[in-house]
Design a protein around this nucleic acid. Structure first.
Lengths: 303, 303
DNA sequence: CTCTCTTACGGCTGGCGTAATGATT
DNA sequence: AATCATTACGCCAGCCGTAAGAGAG
């Protein structure tokens, strides 16, 4: 079995269409058809129910197809992790080196704590990797990071990861200094009703991420305003967006404490639920250094 | 990255030699050299320290090489499991079907219990797969079985598996009916000193397996006799070996209770430690039906 | 001189693209 | 007719094998 074939099959299975998958994979549809046919021949069983009475509705998966879709996704992700981890190892001269993912919204002391945690473990070195907003999950799955700090609605589990909640962060609304509410230290959701808001984007694998940073669900009568994109990738981009007067943005108080600009003001919003910051690792990651650092950080939990 | 290349690299890394690995892989050595070189180029880092001052001692691994060796082994095993599971799914008409591995030495009621356990779980079907002696571990790793019954020295953990001990089995020595000890119901290790014994082979991934079925370690003055191969693959082969007068064999009492032949006698050996029978699954196997059946069987433990 | 890995080169296979065909609504 | 997949066929890249080269004991 070949990883390329597997990628081909997974694309077809996910999109339920050879034509669509061929586009996605940047290859011709007949070539894709052949590739999957070869895979089926090698496995000795059909993976897709073809063209019977559904040429319009695309293809359906067989039991074997369902199985290979699940297994194949895992396998492709594992292959990418292997590649990424090897590349990273190639960049370090010696010893074990772990990548700690964080975003510009992560409280600084936590990043420092991660580096400090490694000092206590012999032969293990942790280096920080800054990730784009909302890519923490993806970074762990693809192997760009071994561990990552994650922000999520309190108590929401994240599939595929082992997460330990560490802190709760109050939330603030960021507005320009010349905003009508800028002189208020704290505001309510009612005050913010109808305000244009920065598009938070969405985080693969983190359900509820988008709603979290839109301040949803909001009580009746405090509707959300226009959502303005594109999503910010970092805190700096978020501040620039706000300073330009295009709308407000919701952030954690930790962000506002760490980044100060005189053209942007942070207003505490007490009726927005706090967000939880946690440290995450892949459930199936059994590498001892990863476990050790993870456990050390877990012990710092204030929850 | 390609699985073929990965297999090439893993072979070289494990054997610490291109020449040896090329033989193992049934390909020419220069082709293998190129294949690994291509992989290194793709990854952008060296995996092996070449030909510096060790052309005699073979190659050494770099940090990246060590990483890719570990990751690659896992990945290749995972690929094989994916393939095997898909093939199995292709053979079942519908629904979830799990393979329960056992050997001819597994107490029958446990196999029956596994099938019965599935009846209580909706949409899950368990079917038995008979494995060769000592291949239980390998079967789980390669995906031939999702669960398997395993026999091991009491309390010995098996790497890579989650195991629940279920029962302890007394052990017996199998001898021909015309053997000098055949009329005795029970014997000691001292009685068996110097007897020729069937080669138990070894089980990949189960440390101590060989010693277990040789009755080792034996007290001083009760030395092991000649070890006669080839290893038996099933209980029937073992009985035939013994009946032919080529030597004795050590088995669990459960085996002797289940298989009766008038040309072979089972003698209880009280001073051999009991073996533990447990049910095993892969640590990282998170599929709910596997967990459910495993947990149901774990609840049957008498330990 | 032997052992081992690398470089060079030629041949072949396998996978892709284009074009044509089939099946269904 | 339009859509979606398969079959037919030619082309090319990549991989393997053979042969030659290079460095160390």
């Amino acid at each position: 079995m070949d990883l390329r074939q597997l990628r081909h099959f997974v694309a077809v299975a996910e999109l339920r269409s050879f034509t669509a998958a061929a586009g996605e994979l940047h290859m011709s549809q007949p070539a894709l058809s052949q590739s999957v046919a070869r895979l089926e021949k090698e496995l000795g069983c059909a993976l897709l129910h073809r063209n019977k009475q559904n040429p319009g509705q695309g293809v359906l998966l067989t039991v074997a197809g369902e199985t290979l879709l699940e297994e194949g996704r895992d396998l492709i992700a594992a292959a990418q992790r292997a590649e990424e981890r090897t590349r990273r190892a190639g960049r370090t001269s010696s010893g074990v080196s772990l990548a700690m993912g964080f975003t510009s919204g992560t409280p600084q002391h936590l990043v420092a704590a991660a580096l400090a945690a490694a000092d206590g473990i012999d032969g293990v070195d942790v280096y920080p990797v800054e990730l784009d907003w909302g890519h923490e999950h993806q970074a762990i799955v693809t192997g760009r990071a071994d561990l990552a700090y994650l922000q999520y609605a309190e108590g929401t589990p994240v599939a595929g990861h082992t997460v330990t909640g560490l802190e709760l962060l109050e939330r603030v609304a960021l507005v320009p200094t010349n905003h009508r509410l800028a002189h208020r230290g704290r505001v309510t959701l009612a005050d913010l009703a109808g305000e244009a808001i920065l598009d938070p984007g969405s985080a693969e694998g983190v359900p509820g991420y988008r709603d979290l940073w839109l301040g949803e669900p909001r009580p009746a009568g405090m509707p959300i305003g226009r959502i303005v994109g594109p999503p910010a990738r970092t805190v700096q981009e978020m501040y620039s967006f706000v300073a330009a007067g295009r709308g407000m943005a919701i952030a954690s108080k930790a962000v506002a404490d760490q980044f100060q600009r005189d053209d942007v003001v942070a207003l505490v919003v007490p009726d927005l639920a706090s967000v939880e910051v946690g440290v995450a690792r892949l459930v199936e990651d059994r590498r001892p250094p990863v476990r050790q650092v993870f456990d050390a950080l877990s012990r710092l939990s204030r929850l």
